[in-house]
Design a protein around this nucleic acid. Structure first.
Length: 929
RNA sequence: GGGCGGUUAGCUCAGUGGUAGAGCAUCGGCCUUACAAGCCGAGGGUCGCAGGUUCGAAACCUGCACCGCCCACCA
């Protein structure tokens, strides 16, 4: 089998994705038996472009979806898009503007038609980009929030909530964007700090004398003032309460009122009250029954209530009014003042608090039920701390303004009889007015906030309000995976709607993804020009590498900071796997298809060892995915594949592969089987490279009902019993550590890697077994000759030989280095019966030193050893002190005491070893120079 | 004003009570027929600061600093 030297990611991506879809692997069948795993995609804006947030989101969803599918779950991942009312409408308006038109010129019908056209053009784009990432959605179930079925759900919800009295119409002070010319919800308003001014303006009493000075950041709204308020406890001003003021410039007479909410410290302590243009004043005005006067129109120009200023834009009016007040001698001073202004989150225009009649949804009760459901644990957030954020918002929730003065969206199912003005809320347009029987009935012009329909996404996409098989089978969904920026907009609303209309939470788990930032840790925005395009990344590194990198970076509770190095490393990883595959295939020439299964008992130590490492990897990866710890799963895979399988097992397999016979058969079988399981584990992370390789090796697999492709192959499970005994594990770890120790020694001594070193290491628990080591540099690890069967351990233990090495390899490793060296040393002690070959080891070392090259730097080597020695001594002393501390002996748990006592012995051995090495260096220096 | 998250090697991040870790980057040595997108080594950290709890703290508690984010009607 000929495989090219480097992995061609693009070819693999093109080869497999369409194939998987054509074969229907991603299709969900509600009729199928089995446990269910279901998830609905956070629908991207229909006209959106893929950004890294999507890429992260989709990669993580795909990892878990593919895993569950392979684990045999009845899996549904439902894709789709959101009509994204205001965002899309703005985009099309911008497009129109380029042609010198605007939507009003076009008219409502043609404009909406144009948006649909736009959707036809760009609507498929983002989903195609998700497919490029490998998203294994059931693409046959694609939904759009304006689909007829989903619209029907929206209408029903509106009508039901209206009939329950939860949706109502009211004239309130709402957020108004003068550019978009629509109402906005509180969430759609961003707050920005601006450096403004505080204008101090004297409002004279009605008799023309004296007056009260107020401080304001918005002088132009004074035209709508209907009172001046002071704190009743304010000694300076309370005597004025009840007096009348003549409002400058327009001459309206207003009263001075008292209200405890007034901050005496701010400004002059007197507040101009503008109920028509300020939320605080609106509240205050309602308490005192003040008139509400609006002085601005929908485009934020002064209206007919603004007298001489009518027609001016609000900024113009402000300048003019300040100027006029100054001429009138009423402007007392101007102070610089920073404060926050609300801006439209879509277009950044300063939002105007405006009096307006809108539709509202009462939230308190629904919010309370959502809180209760999360408290009960029906839904759990990951990471958990997001629950606080969720509670916090819901506990302080205000009614939701759901109507928008837009054209793109779900038109509100409310109708009005032209003749008698009767309001009818109904799913269908009524033919006649039930009050006056009039037939002239018009529908409300407004559409719903786009989040109203996305809030229904988990139920509407499954067919609600009908009782569909999908709804019954897949609802509640298993998981929602989304960004924190839409917890309020979307997650909370889905919770509330789901509970309200099905009595059940819409998802059991919510995984909140972190924010993706650029390499400098900055948020990516178009205006900063630091947006990294995932399509470029895929082009450069391949979809697998992009997915794997995002998974690695997605630690819970942290922002994802991009790093090109990481993408490059993942691409190298894909290539590494590819080359491992080439090695395996090269060595399977002429092998049976499928390979005959080899019993575990007939495998060598290295074979059993890699199988054992594989089991540990399977367990850890599975556990991490279950816990949504994608980064840990990815890291473990990387560690196993590269450092355990490639670095060790492949190297160790070379000799048996050449040997022919049973050992060759065993090595072949292990190579294929480990590779197979490894690819299955890897597949959810790197679907393309894994499939590309698996297709080549699958002919060797002997599995009943073997899947044709990886997406539906069975997910690996760890063996019930460890293929490696504790003793064998110890032996193998000794080999690894001995090899590393001697490689390090050679490097330290400045020897050429090709320089042969002969030596042996005897693992202490196996005193009658030795591992001969002959490294000639060209096959560094190959020289280890493993005993066919490790002999039973000798029970005699020397001082350094007390550690129980049945612990995790990584923790164990440093001790083993010590072991290898300590062995050497103990042999020098007089009371030991001295095994002859230990002296040989030392002898070998001396010979090497004698043969050291002319330019060998003894000073550097000595320095390094001395440093190491002092570190060891520090550790030794610390541990020794600890061990001899009576309190430690009294209070520390026994296992800890033992552990540290063992460490003391080991460190002591290692110290002696380093001392020996140092003395050898000294000797060699005087000898050789 | 309230709340949340973060601070560990040059960079990006693991590490929830027992000798500080990985990847990348750096340095040294290797073209060794799976892989130079590679292999073998090495250097590099008073774990943000100050207290406390503990036999023992990067980890647990308190306070502080700095970075980032969210919420909020001081005109």
């Amino acid at each position: 089998m000929d495989l090219p030297k480097t992995f061609d990611s693009k070819a693999a991506e093109e080869r497999w994705f369409q194939r998987w879809i054509d074969l229907g692997y991603f299709k969900a069948d509600p009729a199928r038996e089995g446990k269910v795993f279901s998830i609905v995609i956070p629908p991207p804006n229909v006209t959106g472009q893929l950004h890294l947030g999507h890429a992260l989101n989709v990669s993580l969803q795909d990892i878990i979806v593919r895993t569950r599918r392979m684990q045999g779950y009845n899996t549904l991942w439902l894709p789709g898009t959101d009509h994204a009312g205001i965002a899309t409408q703005n985009a099309v308006e911008k497009d129109l503007a380029r042609e010198g038109k605007d939507r009003h010129l076009l008219g409502r019908e043609p404009f909406v038609k144009r948006v649909w056209q736009w959707r036809e053009t760009y609507g498929g784009r983002i989903l195609n980009q998700l497919r490029r990432l490998g998203a294994s959605c059931d693409w046959s179930r694609e939904r759009f929030t304006l689909d007829p079925g989903l619209s029907r759900a929206v209408t029903k919800v509106f009508v039901d909530l209206y009939n329950k009295g939860m949706i109502y119409r009211a004239k309130r002070l709402i957020n108004w964007c003068p550019r978009c010319e629509t109402a906005l919800s509180d969430l759609e308003v961003d707050h920005k700090d601006v450096k403004g001014h505080l204008w101090y303006i004297r409002y004279p009493f009605a008799d023309g004398h004296g007056g009260v000075t107020i401080a304001t950041t918005r002088p132009e709204t004074m035209l709508g003032d209907t009172a001046v308020a002071v704190n009743p406890d304010d000694a300076r001003l309370s005597s004025y309460v009840g007096k009348t003021i003549r409002l400058p410039l327009i001459g309206r007479e207003i009263k001075i009122i008292a209200d405890a909410a007034i901050d005496r410290e701010f400004g002059t302590g007197a507040l101009k009250v503008t109920p028509g243009h300020d939320p605080v004043d609106f509240e205050l005005g309602s308490r005192h029954g003040l008139e509400q006067i609006s002085v601005l129109d929908g485009k934020a120009r002064m209206n007919e209530n603004a007298g001489p200023y009518r027609g001016l834009a609000r900024e113009e009016a402000r300048k003019q009014i300040v100027k006029d007040l100054d001429s009138a001698g009423l402007l007392e001073k101007i102070e610089p003042h920073s404060h926050a202004v609300g801006v439209c989150s879509r277009c950044d225009t300063i939002v105007e608090p405006m009096l307006s009649e809108q539709w509202f949804l009462r939230m308190k009760e629904m919010a309370a039920r959502a809180i209760e459901a999360v408290r009960r644990g029906d839904t759990t957030f990951h990471p958990k701390f997001w629950e606080n954020t969720f509670f916090n918002w819901l506990e302080n929730i205000h009614d939701w303004c759901i109507s928008r003065q837009l054209w793109w969206g779900h038109r509100i199912p409310a109708y009005r009889c032209v003749r008698c003005d009767h309001l009818i809320v109904a799913a269908e347009r009524p033919a006649r007015c039930p009050e006056c029987d009039g037939s002239d009935i018009i529908q409300d012009d407004d559409v719903l906030d786009t989040w109203f329909s996305s809030g229904l996404w988990p139920i509407s996409t499954l067919g609600w309000p009908d009782d569909t098989p999908e709804l019954r089978r897949y609802y509640p969904t298993s998981l929602l995976l989304t960004g924190f920026d839409i917890i309020f907009f979307w997650v909370a609303r889905m919770m509330m709607f789901g509970l309200e209309f099905t009595g059940k939470v819409p998802f059991k788990d919510v995984y909140i993804t972190p924010l993706v930032r650029d390499e400098l840790g900055k948020k990516m925005t178009k205006s900063k020009g630091n947006v990294v395009d995932p399509l470029d990344l895929m082009e450069q590194y391949g979809a697998d590498a992009v997915r794997f990198t995002l998974a690695q970076l997605a630690a819970q509770g942290r922002d994802v900071i991009l790093s090109h190095d990481r993408f490059a490393a993942s691409r190298a990883f894909a290539n590494k796997i590819w080359n491992a595959a080439r090695f395996v295939m090269m060595n399977l020439d002429g092998a049976d298809q499928p390979l005959a299964i080899v019993e575990i008992a007939k495998l060598g130590l290295a074979e059993r060892w890699i199988l054992s490492r594989l089991d540990s990897t399977i367990r850890e990866v599975t556990r991490a995915i279950d816990a949504y710890e994608f980064n840990l799963a990815a890291m473990r895979l990387y560690q196993f594949i590269w450092h355990e399988f490639c670095d060790w097992y492949i190297e160790l397999s070379k000799e048996p592969l050449k040997s022919g016979g049973e050992r060759q058969a065993a090595a072949r079988w292990v190579l294929i089987n480990v590779f197979d399981k490894m690819l299955r584990l890897l597949h959810p992370f790197m679907p393309f490279v894994s499939e590309e390789i698996w297709q080549v090796i699958r002919v060797y697999l002997d599995e009943p009902n073997l899947a044709a492709h990886l997406p539906i192959a069975k997910y690996p499970e760890a063996s019930a019993t460890n293929p490696l005994s504790a003793a064998e594990e110890t032996a193998m770890n000794h080999c690894i550590v001995a090899t590393q120790g001697l490689n390090s020694l050679r490097s330290l001594l400045g020897l050429h890697p090709g320089q042969a070193i002969n030596g042996f290491v005897r693992p202490l628990p196996y005193r009658d077994v030795e591992f001969n080591y002959e490294s000639d540099g060209t096959k560094q690890k190959l020289g280890i000759r493993f005993p066919e069967k490790p002999a039973v351990a000798d029970s005699r233990l020397i001082a350094a030989d007390v550690a129980d090495f049945r612990t995790d390899f990584d923790r164990w490793k440093p001790y083993a280095v010590t072991m290898a060296k300590a062995e050497t040393l103990t042999m020098l002690e007089p009371d030991q019966s001295k095994p002859p070959r230990t002296a040989g080891w030392v002898q070998g070392l001396i010979e090497i030193l004698v043969k050291a090259p002319e330019d060998f730097d003894f000073q550097i080597a000595t320095k390094a050893l001395e440093k190491k020695l002092s570190e060891l001594q520090a550790h030794y002393e610390r541990d020794l002190k600890r061990v001899s501390d009576p309190e430690f002996q009294a209070k520390a748990p026994q296992e800890k005491r033992e552990e540290i006592e063992q460490r003391v012995a080991l460190t002591r051995g290692e110290i002696m070893s380093v001392q020996l090495q140092l003395s050898l260096l000294e000797g060699a220096e005087s000898h050789g120079h």
